[in-house]
Design a protein around this nucleic acid. Structure first.
Length: 203
DNA sequence: ACATCGATCTACT
DNA sequence: GTAGATCGATGTA
């Protein structure tokens, strides 16, 4: 637990513990909205508030793990609270948080952030200037934060990568079908914050 | 061995 | 709205 103060405001932040990830994946995807993703890099801290997520469950055809373990998806079968990073379309990385106990391969995809710290570094990483162009998509936010395949399997309770709760209540969380998924459109497993909708992808 | 497609993004029409 | 980028996973032969 850390305490920060700015002027007259005093508040506490705590790092999410293993229990946060060790539960129902749809619940975790919804609960992750409003939390803060932090990457500690040689260029300094880069962070953002999670405003959009999606849940991927093991029995879902859209889930990478639904047809068994491969070199790519192996991290999904492991411990909860680790980062599953995969490479897609030949040029983008996507970041997930592994949920559920070992052997149950489920995860939540992080789709959008509101940029908080290290915004100038995000601009350099992205080659874009406007804050709205930095983290409004799964491939964009990994590029902005400097997250690549070297962080696949990284512990989210560690020093390089972690998720914080600063006590912010984001209010209403909207549920919709997942983006880019043809099957199971009746499963409303995409979540985003109505209050932070300007930062969400695909608007 | 070859073809297709993907939990995406950008640039251009 | 559509094409192109470009690698790994998957499906068919």
């Amino acid at each position: 637990m850390t305490t920060r103060s700015t002027g007259l405001t005093l508040w506490t932040m705590h790092k999410l513990t293993r229990d946060f990830y060790l539960r129902d994946t749809v619940e975790a995807a919804k609960a992750a909205i409003g939390k803060i993703l932090v990457h500690s890099t040689p260029h300094g801290i880069i962070s953002g508030r999670i405003v959009e997520t999606e849940a991927y469950l093991r029995d879902d055809p859209a889930c990478h793990a639904s047809r068994g373990m491969t070199r790519r998806n192996a991290v999904m079968f492991g411990e909860a609270g680790r980062a599953y990073v995969y490479f897609t379309y030949g040029l983008h990385y996507c970041l997930n948080f592994v949920t559920q106990p070992e052997g149950i391969a489920e995860a939540i995809l992080i789709r959008a952030l509101e940029p908080l710290e290290g915004i100038d570094q995000m601009r350099r990483n992205r080659g874009k200037d406007h804050p709205r162009d930095l983290c409004g998509g799964p491939g964009k936010l990994t590029q902005a934060l400097g997250i690549d395949i070297s962080l696949n399997g990284e512990d989210l309770l560690g020093d390089r990568l972690c998720v914080l709760d600063d006590g912010t209540d984001v209010g209403e969380v909207v549920s919709r079908p997942r983006i880019g998924i043809k099957e199971a459109t009746d499963r409303l497993w995409r979540f985003y914050s109505a209050a932070y909708v300007d930062w969400v992808s695909m608007r």
